[in-house]
Amino acid sequence: MRKVGFLIYPGYQPMGIAVTAPFEIANLQAARPIYDVRMVSMHGGLVRTSLGFEIMTEPIATGHYDLIVVGASLEEPSAELIELIRATPSFCRRIAATCHGAFVLAEAGLLDGRRATTHWDRAADLRAGYPTVKVDEDRIFISDGPIWTSAGMTAGIDLALALIEQDLGVEATRNVARRLLLYHRRSGGQSQFSALLELEGSSDRIQVVLNYARANLTKRLSVGELADIANLSPRQFSRVFQSETGQTPAKAIERLRLEEARRLLEDSNHPLDVVARMTGFGDRDRMRRALTRTFGKSSRVMPRQPHRDAVTESEPV
């Protein structure tokens, strides 16, 4: 059985406890328990969280762990805790940090020379405070050898699923994700910023249009069609849409297509032609040019460098 320790220390943010759920589900699905999950602290006993309630822990032992997970806290870690983290590679196969927990690993020197991520709002602080760490804030999670880091909050669940996939394979992990009611398991390369989530209209009619677009990305959506759904003329619709979302309809719909294309290229084995059809780009070259324009020639999702192109407002969106 693989021993997993969730390291709890004063000010621990309770959202980190949610990361235990994938390991529990993996145990429930298996013929026998796979993970021995424990809440551990420096000396054991009750540890007060950032919300004021306490978590019962056991003392962390220096016996072998398969994984130790360091969560985020609103309090500075003690020097004693940092020394413990510094020693973990000697008795732990893998070490992970979620959200601001990356700062604990960095202070202990475990991220020196390694790639790492954290919540986007603290990435600049991590880069400034620990210049030897290769910080990439535009990632859901990163693994660099035995050290894993994730972005904030729910990204810790994506990290847990990736760790389980490393242990048990893709199909077992998909089953865990289904049990957790996750729409899809996000890959580590996915951006922390989501146009699918952030793009909203302030009025019902624009929100209806956005919902329709999200559900119909395979279609060659036109401004006229979207205006009809909003019960506005094309001119009125374009003006109201840009006023409420800050983007033209063409740019907004293209960004929704791009994010879905990027997800499919990262999380599936679909050929480029299939992804282009599924996201409404029509052909792979148009999709590749749009991906390059938005994410750059070094985009991780692109198998080879595409050429640049322009998209005009007169084109179908």
Results as ranks from 00 to 15, higher is better:
208 V>C: 07
205 R>P: 15
195 A>R: 04
224 G>R: 09
237 F>R: 08
221 L>Y: 08
250 A>E: 11
242 Q>H: 10
187 S>I: 07
236 Q>I: 11
215 A>S: 10
251 K>S: 11
190 Q>C: 11
221 L>W: 06
192 Q>I: 15
228 D>T: 14
163 L>P: 10
219 K>S: 14
167 D>M: 00
184 H>P: 04
208 V>I: 11
167 D>K: 00
222 S>A: 10
205 R>S: 15
201 G>R: 06
217 L>E: 01
172 A>D: 03
241 F>E: 04
239 R>D: 12
232 L>S: 05
226 L>G: 11
185 R>K: 15
174 R>I: 04
243 S>E: 08
190 Q>I: 15
189 G>A: 06
174 R>M: 06
184 H>C: 04
235 R>E: 05
231 N>C: 11
172 A>F: 03
225 E>Q: 08
205 R>E: 13
247 Q>P: 06
210 L>S: 09
224 G>Q: 14
215 A>I: 05
252 A>W: 07
215 A>H: 04
198 E>L: 07
234 P>L: 02
182 L>R: 10
238 S>E: 03
224 G>S: 10
162 A>E: 01
177 A>Q: 01
238 S>M: 03
203 S>A: 14
247 Q>R: 14
217 L>K: 05
205 R>Q: 12
224 G>A: 03
232 L>Y: 07
209 V>A: 04
173 T>Y: 01
209 V>F: 10
250 A>D: 08
162 A>H: 07
249 P>F: 02
253 I>E: 00
214 R>K: 08
183 Y>W: 11
168 L>A: 00
193 F>E: 03
163 L>C: 01
229 I>P: 09
204 D>S: 15
257 R>K: 08
228 D>R: 15
178 R>Q: 13
219 K>G: 08
207 Q>A: 13
252 A>Y: 09
205 R>C: 14
213 A>P: 12
170 V>A: 05
205 R>M: 10
208 V>G: 05
187 S>C: 05
245 T>N: 01
235 R>A: 11
187 S>A: 13
192 Q>N: 11
186 R>F: 01
231 N>D: 14
209 V>Q: 00
166 Q>V: 01
185 R>F: 03
254 E>M: 06
172 A>Y: 03
206 I>A: 12
200 E>C: 15
204 D>Y: 10
192 Q>K: 14
197 L>E: 07
198 E>P: 08
193 F>K: 03
208 V>P: 06
213 A>D: 00
188 G>I: 14
161 L>Q: 05
249 P>Q: 00
190 Q>V: 12
217 L>A: 02
222 S>C: 13
230 A>K: 02
223 V>C: 04
174 R>C: 04
211 N>I: 04
179 R>M: 03
191 S>H: 09
257 R>V: 12
226 L>W: 10
201 G>L: 06
171 E>D: 08
224 G>Y: 02
234 P>G: 06
250 A>M: 12
225 E>R: 10
188 G>T: 13
226 L>S: 09
243 S>P: 02
166 Q>T: 08
169 G>C: 05
176 V>I: 11
247 Q>T: 09
183 Y>F: 12
246 G>H: 06
